[in-house]
Write a protein that binds this DNA or RNA. Sequence first.
DNA 1: AATATCCGCAACCGCTCCGAC
DNA 2: CGTCGGAGCGGTTGCGGATAT
Length: 370
Amino acid sequence: MGRPPCCDKSNVKRGLWTPEEDAKILAYVSNHGIGNWTLVPKKAGLNRCGKSCRLRWTNYLRPDLKHDNFTPQEEEFIINLHEAIGSRWSLIAKRLPGRTDNDVKNYWNTKLRKKLMKMGIDPVTHKPVSQVLSDLGSISGLPSTNQMSFVNKDLMSNVLPTRTEPSASQYSSGMANAGAKKNPMVEHTQEDQVHSWEHQVQYQVISPENVQPHFFSESASSSSSSSSSNFTGLSSPQSYSCNTSQAQITPPCSSFDWSEFLHSDPFMWSEFQQLQQCDLHKVMSSLKPSGLMLSEVELSNNNKSNGHDKQGGASECSGDVACDTSMGDQINNQCEGHSASGNSFVDGILDRDSEIRATFPELLDASFDY
DNA sequence: AATATCCGCAACCGCTCCGAC
DNA sequence: CGTCGGAGCGGTTGCGGATAT
């Protein structure tokens, strides 16, 4: 049973806002402040959905917003945070006064992503394209069409003559979304990481594999092929791991110490202690049953099985501390199953892909031709 | 000059979260 | 404890201007 719409869509105005409508919102907010947005249209005399009013206010009318171009500093900040926490636009925007999540998202999609690709950097993994391709090739020789469906579409469109392939993007975005949204730990962890990044790791690259909600970074980090990068566009050393050298990236099995990392920031440490109360059941039960939906829990536990997160990292691994053991075993078994086959995570993905394709042969139709 | 294509941005959509009841 | 509904989030769409042909 679906949820009823917040307003009668057929009877509300949509599309661009007029100056008169803007003035009504501004007048209303200046007189009454921000309250219940569903009541705003009626009280302000607007024939708009309340949600639309809220968006107009937060994305455009708010007096504290900047409407000028992004500065190089802001640009660098966005790239760094994206590398650390992925496409958590609201979190990134919170750290950029006067910018909204929509601003940041649009700027990323229209400028930064292309800029990175032009520089030979995969905007999803923040690794050199050559390395990503090398890793891809190492999965099983030349990548098959099926395997290609897992790859960041931007990257592949950069290197291969592809056709639009909705399943690939939906797969990746859906997965990232599911993990990020359904795991309450993730939000804290990423907040923490932003916080920490701002305060104490200005010139140290945090290992993004531990938190980044993109499964492809897993496969990409599964090998350590070296590659050069022609990345020279950004100035500060931390802005690109691949700019200076791959050695700056904390390797997947490094001695990265989460405890030390967390202790270094009192705020983060107290947050972490609260997070020890994680309810893994809630996380697991919220996961989609489909084999296509790998959660961050799954990803991170796979990390763990590879030697990550010695201290029960700030997010997922606190599940080891407080969560139900049978569920933990279940996850561990799943991870072990992956890692037992050599390429671990990647093989797990491919196995699942095969299963799904066997179940849904229509996935192999002509839309996958190149 | 006309048309096609590209690009950037504002707005919308669908979903989840979370507090109130 | 379950339901409801507002708020917030990330992804996507579509319009309008800029640029290319």
